[in-house]
Amino acid sequence: NSLAEAKVLANRELDKYGVSDYYKNLINNAKTVEGVKALIDEILA
């Protein structure tokens, strides 16, 4: 998966839960796919 794909999928996942734009910005600023995954795990914990 590319970083861009990971960000799109992460933001879709956040949308399902009604997560605020603050967290979407964190996702969009992530530098690695692993970073995106770690943020998602933390946000949805």
Rank of each mutant, 00 (worst) to 15 (best):
A4V: 09
N11S: 10
K31T: 15
K16S: 05
G18C: 05
L3Q: 01
I40A: 07
I40T: 08
K24P: 02
A4H: 14
V19T: 07
L14V: 05
L39G: 01
A10W: 02
E5Y: 11
E13N: 05
R12K: 13
D15R: 07
D21F: 07
K16P: 03
V8E: 15
Y17R: 10
A45Q: 14
D41Q: 13
G18M: 09
D15P: 01
A10Q: 01
T32C: 03
N11K: 12
K31P: 07
A45P: 05
S20D: 11
A30Y: 01
V8C: 04
E42P: 03
A45K: 13
L3I: 04
A30E: 09
D21S: 09
A4T: 10
K16D: 04
N1T: 13
L39F: 04
K37L: 13
A6T: 08
D21N: 10
E42V: 12
L39T: 03
I43W: 10
E34L: 06
K31Q: 14
K37T: 09
D15N: 06
I40W: 07
N28D: 11
A10N: 00
V19R: 05
D15V: 09
N1K: 05
V36L: 11
N29W: 04
K16T: 07
R12S: 11
Y17I: 14
Y23A: 04
Y23G: 03
E34T: 05
L14D: 00
G35V: 13
Y22V: 11
K7F: 02
K7A: 03
L39N: 01
N11L: 08
G18H: 10
L26P: 01
K7N: 01
I27Y: 01
R12G: 07
S2I: 12
A6K: 03
Y23M: 06
T32Y: 02
N1P: 14
S20W: 07
I43H: 02
S2N: 10
K37N: 10
S2Y: 08
A10M: 02
D21I: 07
L9R: 14
A38S: 10
G35Y: 10
A30T: 05
E34Y: 05
K16H: 07
V8S: 12
L44C: 01
A30V: 05
I27A: 01
Y17T: 04
A45R: 11
K31Y: 06
A6H: 09
L3D: 01
V36G: 00
T32I: 01
I40G: 01
T32H: 03
A45H: 09
T32G: 03
V36K: 00
V19G: 13
Y17K: 06
N11Y: 14
D41F: 08
K37M: 15
D15M: 11
N1A: 14
Y17E: 04
D41P: 03
R12C: 03
A6M: 13
Y22A: 08
L44V: 11
E5N: 09
G18S: 08
D41E: 13
A4D: 13
A6D: 03
K37R: 12
L3V: 04
V19A: 11
K31W: 10
I43S: 02
A45F: 13
L26Y: 05
L26M: 09
I27K: 00
E42H: 14
N11V: 13
G18L: 06
Y22L: 08
L9S: 12
N25Y: 11
G18F: 10
D21V: 09
N1R: 07
V36D: 00
N29Q: 14
A4M: 10
L9G: 05
L39E: 01
N1C: 05
S20E: 07
E13K: 08
K31R: 07
E5I: 13
A38R: 12
K24S: 04
A45C: 07
L3W: 01
Y17M: 13
V36P: 00
A30I: 05
E13V: 15
N29T: 11
K31L: 14
L14H: 01
A38V: 10
A6G: 02
V36Q: 00
V33E: 05
A38I: 12
K31S: 14
K24T: 06
I27Q: 00
T32A: 02
V33A: 05
L9H: 10
E5W: 12
V36A: 01
A6I: 14
E5T: 09
V33H: 06
A6Y: 12
A4S: 13
I43T: 02
Y17D: 02
A10H: 01
L39C: 03
K16N: 08
I27D: 00
E5K: 07
K16F: 05
G35E: 15
T32L: 02
A4P: 04
N1S: 13
N1G: 06
L44F: 07
D21K: 04
T32F: 02
D15H: 07
E13D: 04
N1D: 13
K37S: 04
E42Y: 14
S20G: 13
L14P: 00
E34H: 06
K16R: 11
S2M: 10
A45G: 13
G35K: 14
K31I: 11
N11E: 11
N25I: 08
L44N: 04
A10G: 04
D21T: 08
Y23F: 13
A30P: 00
K37Y: 07
D41L: 13
K24M: 06
V8G: 08
I27R: 00
L44P: 01
S2K: 12
L9T: 11
L39V: 10
K24G: 03
I27N: 00
N25L: 11
V19I: 15
R12L: 15
Y17F: 09
K7R: 04
N11A: 10
N28L: 09
V33P: 06
V36I: 10
L44K: 10
S20M: 10
A45I: 10
D15C: 01
I40H: 04
E42A: 12
A30Q: 12
I40Q: 08
A38C: 07
E13H: 09
A6F: 06
A10D: 01
L3A: 02
A6W: 15
K7H: 02
Y17N: 06
A6R: 03
V36M: 04
V8K: 15
A4K: 11
N29D: 14
Y17L: 15
A38D: 11
L9V: 10
I43A: 10
N28R: 06
K16V: 05
N29F: 07
V33G: 02
V8I: 15
A4G: 08
L44T: 08
E42G: 08
I43Y: 10
Y23Q: 04
E13M: 15
I43F: 11
K31V: 14
L3F: 01
R12F: 11
